[in-house]
Design a protein around this nucleic acid. Structure first.
Lengths: 212, 212
DNA sequence: AGTGAATGTTGACGGCGTTAACCTTGGCGG
DNA sequence: CCGCCAAGGTTAACGCCGTCAACATTCACT
């Protein structure tokens, strides 16, 4: 009989990899990537530290698991914001609406889950150089952005000679603001200022991308 | 007689704080903030680890010293780029030229000194909450940017109702790109792509800020 | 039932930041 | 000139960390 996921009766845990990832994720959520401590995760799961090595090559692989989870959560936050506003009749306006929604989702996630967000983009040892293309939901934020930009082209709002590097521009802007708010000089903005900055940013990106 | 700075003859070093900061800076330069290890800096200076505590409250204060140095270097890099191109006759065009130069200086420094750049913006414990306003050259990059944006207003290229948060927009864009190149999915761009992206970015910021 | 692979365990090592307690020395007042 | 004391070094130790080696337990299959 397959032991239940949270069962910790016997010598074998049954789902240690997931349990460790979960504990490590909680550490990251509250303390950021530097709080992801292998021994602490094992301690919280109720297992010896070295047990983790049966499921992860080491600390960097554990933090990488959290990283992937955080990226998937980021993508989900963007999707949520995408669905939170009603479509607009004009297709061009609607494409802009979706672009702004993706940016808001990105920034809202960064502010709501700073620890996870920072972990999603923390500098970690390469995990045998396969992650970038392999994991489907790690690149989901990028795919979402690309799709909306393609729509902007299809709808005639974004000229083809400005299509190149458009992802890089939009992503840089939103990512930079997120980090300045989390680790930089824009920490702890009051809600009203935050809203104003985000609104200003959506107009900024729109104009920067599409205006001639 | 004041012992020479690099003199290490006697029991007392004579300039330990500077020597440690220098060693720590070198560590940061090659390995980023996570490579700034107090014991290693002391080792390289030829002194016991605990000697550092006569000059720094602890590790966070040491890394903070490196941080301030890195920020001053960043400001210098921006100034260098500012002086690297000749002024343009049209004052509006010249203001744009200076804005682009600041961005290029920022990005060039990030690429040329990734370890220092990452240290300049790393998450560290607050040093008794005084740093932001006190240190004059820590905020130099911001002042440079503000000044050019004021010039854009004076010259009539930037309307007053778009002046607010203009620093935040420009800085976010450039900072986000820097981090995506250093820690994110845009690592190790070939030179030609880098140049193209930077050129695209300067046009992007210009349009985002000033176009109606 | 028995055996090997999977998955736990303990113990140890070296490196880290940090503290406590102790030495060395330069400079200053008597 | 001397003695002393504060400034600035030292060693020893603590508790943390990641990691490895060696050993123990259990599961699953024959």
């Amino acid at each position: 009989m397959n032991p239940s996921r949270t069962d910790r009766s016997g010598y074998h845990h049954g789902d240690l990899a997931n349990a460790l990832t979960k504990a490590a994720t909680e550490l990251a959520r509250t303390g950021g990537p530097e709080a992801v401590v292998l021994r602490e995760a094992a301690r919280q799961v109720g297992v010896s530290a070295t047990a983790a090595y049966r499921h992860f090559a080491g600390h960097s692989e554990l933090i990488h698991a959290v990283k992937e989870y955080a990226l998937s959560r980021l993508g989900a936050a963007m999707q949520v914001e995408l669905a939170a506003t009603d479509p607009l009749p004009d297709p061009a306006e609607d494409a802009y609406r979706r672009l702004a929604a993706l940016g808001r989702g990105y920034l809202n996630f960064a502010v709501a889950e700073p620890g996870l967000f920072r972990t999603a983009f923390c500098h970690a040892d390469k995990p045998t150089f396969d992650s970038l293309d392999k994991d489907p939901n790690a690149t989901e934020p990028y795919r979402l952005l690309s799709a909306v930009l393609d729509d902007l082209v299809a709808v005639g709002s974004l000229d083809l000679d400005r299509r190149e590097y458009a992802e890089t521009m939009a992503w840089s802007t939103v990512h930079g603001l997120a980090l300045l708010m989390l680790e930089g000089p824009l920490q702890n903005l009051p809600q009203e200022v935050y809203d104003a900055v985000v609104n200003r940013l959506t107009a900024f990106v729109r104009d920067g991308l599409t205006t001639r």
